[in-house]
Structure formats: C-alpha cells, structure tokens
Simulated scan of single mutants.
Amino acid sequence: MFTDRSGLIVWISDSKAASKHLDRYGSVHFISKRLHYAAMYVHTSKLDETMKQLQKLPFVKKVERSYRNEIKTEYSSNMPDKTRFYTL
C-alpha cells in the first residue's frame, strides 16, 4: 500500500517557478521563500532519474538527497539507569 519514498532538498532561485513546476516530479512537502529551498519526496525507484531531470531545470541551483530514512531510529541502552541515585 505504501510506496518507498526518498526525500530531496532542491535549492532554487525562483520560488514561484518552483511551486508551479516541482509537482510534476514528486510530492512537494515545503517551499521556503526566505531560504530558497524546497523539500520534496519522490519514488525511490526513480530517484536518480528524477535528480538528473531536476538539475536541468533553469531555476534549480543544486539537488541534494536526504539520508533521513537511512538513519538508525532504534536505540539500545547499555548504560544502567541512574535515576534512582538522584531521588530525594
């Protein structure tokens, strides 16, 4: 049901053109007018192809891949719990 998506950060020079044209390539999550970037999600299977297409657009300065889905989010605590030493 859910497709694998990867995040992209697209550095732009024109936010108005970005808001019109970036929807064709994936799901636009956020466009910052002040910092001139757009955060968007694309299908993982078409990631490299989409990055090349986005780089060819005239208002795009740089395209960066987000590594958020590759970061480990399950943590293990090997340290003993010290809260009992700090009770009153």
Rank of each mutant, 00 (worst) to 15 (best):
K82L: 13
F59R: 08
L47T: 01
I71T: 04
H21G: 00
Y86T: 11
E70Y: 09
K62Y: 06
Y75F: 11
S32L: 03
P58K: 03
K20M: 14
D81R: 14
Y41Q: 09
D4H: 05
M51C: 07
S77H: 15
K20G: 03
D48T: 09
D14S: 03
A39D: 13
K82Y: 10
I12L: 11
N69G: 04
V28K: 09
K56Q: 05
G26W: 01
D81Y: 07
V42T: 08
T44K: 05
M51H: 12
S32V: 06
A18G: 12
I71V: 14
M40E: 09
S27L: 05
P80I: 02
V28Q: 03
K82H: 12
S77R: 06
H36E: 05
R68W: 09
S19M: 03
Y67E: 07
L54I: 03
S76C: 14
D14V: 08
G7E: 07
V63S: 01
M79R: 13
D48I: 14
G7Y: 08
H36I: 00
Q55A: 13
S6K: 10
K56M: 06
L88K: 09
W11M: 13
K46Y: 11
S76T: 14
I12S: 14
L47K: 04
R5P: 15
H29T: 05
F2I: 15
F30Y: 13
L54G: 02
S32A: 12
G26E: 01
I12K: 11
K56L: 02
W11R: 06
D48P: 05
F59M: 09
K61P: 04
Q53R: 04
P80R: 06
T83F: 12
R68I: 09
L47G: 02
G7W: 14
P80Q: 15
T83G: 15
V28N: 14
F85G: 15
L57I: 07
F59E: 08
